[in-house]
């Protein structure tokens, strides 16, 4: 049984990725991946998020995120009636283990907001890097060259969304890579893979066949803090005005 499964694996297209090199981490990209053919972003469907924390745990498992820091996290908003200016927000341990149950509030509403790097097209973080250690890749992903970063934390200060941190052991800037090591191999991100409800969808904005284009036609979407004019590429469906 094991042998046939293994043979099957070798024959299948997904296996064309060549598991050995994928797992060994050889510095080669997937054979057919062309950086200029993609422009990556994400769609987050707030009404679908159940606050299970799967994405946070998946991200930490996939990317060795240090304790107490988050490449992605989930916030729970509680907004009373029309009081958009004063939401009550919690994110215990980044929502990693979910959220405490709440009873119905006749006067307000609850909802979850998953957060991650917005992979801004006009990113304020890459703008301020003094040495060119963080950058927007040709396929629109904001990355950190951790062998070049000197750990000044200017980028951390410049991010309006709190998506960056200094890795306590590596002493360099760390952040969401949009699972660059996965999406360049035809896989989705760890958070999207682990999301049970499809609340998170990786989106290739350059690919006309990507389902995001049909979705955007029929839904009201917004980015976080649009007044910051960062060209954020993480789009939120049905984002409440209280979210910041």
């Amino acid at each position: 049984m094991n042998i046939t499964r293994r043979h099957l694996l070798i024959l299948l297209p997904a296996a064309a990725v060549a598991w050995e090199s994928v797992l060994a981490g050889t510095p080669e990209e997937a054979p057919n991946y062309k950086k200029t053919d993609h422009w990556w972003g994400m769609l987050i469907d707030i009404p679908k998020c159940i606050g299970c924390g799967n994405c946070v745990r998946a991200c930490q498992a996939e990317n060795d995120v240090p304790d107490g820091f988050f490449r992605t996290w989930v916030e729970r908003y509680h907004v009373e009636d029309w009081n958009l200016a004063n939401p009550e927000v919690i994110s215990p341990d980044g929502g990693k283990e979910g959220f405490p149950s709440v009873a119905e509030d006749s006067n307000g509403k609850y909802f979850f907001v998953p957060k991650l790097c917005n992979h801004c097209a006009d990113s304020p973080c890459t703008q301020v890097c003094p040495v060119g250690a963080t950058f927007i890749s040709p396929d629109g992903v904001v990355l950190v060259d951790q062998t070049y970063c000197m750990g000044c934390a200017y980028c951390v200060q410049a991010c309006p969304y709190g998506c960056r941190y200094i890795h306590p052991q590596k002493r360099v800037a760390d952040k969401c890579t949009l699972c660059y090591h996965r999406i360049t191999k035809g896989l989705t991100t760890a958070c999207c893979e682990a999301c049970p409800t499809g609340a998170r969808q990786l989106a290739d904005l350059k690919n006309p066949k990507d389902p995001i284009h049909a979705f955007l036609k029929t839904h009201t979407v917004q980015v976080l803090k649009p007044q910051m004019a960062t060209g954020a590429k993480v789009f939120y469906n049905a984002l409440d005005g209280s979210v910041r």
Partner: peptide, 19 residues
């Protein structure tokens, strides 16, 4: 975090960075 890399500011200064 990595003072030994600070010389990169002179080697590859990023024009858009005030720092």
């Amino acid at each position: 975090g990595h003072p030994e890399r600070s010389f990169e500011m002179y080697l590859t200064p990023h024009r858009t960075s005030a720092m």
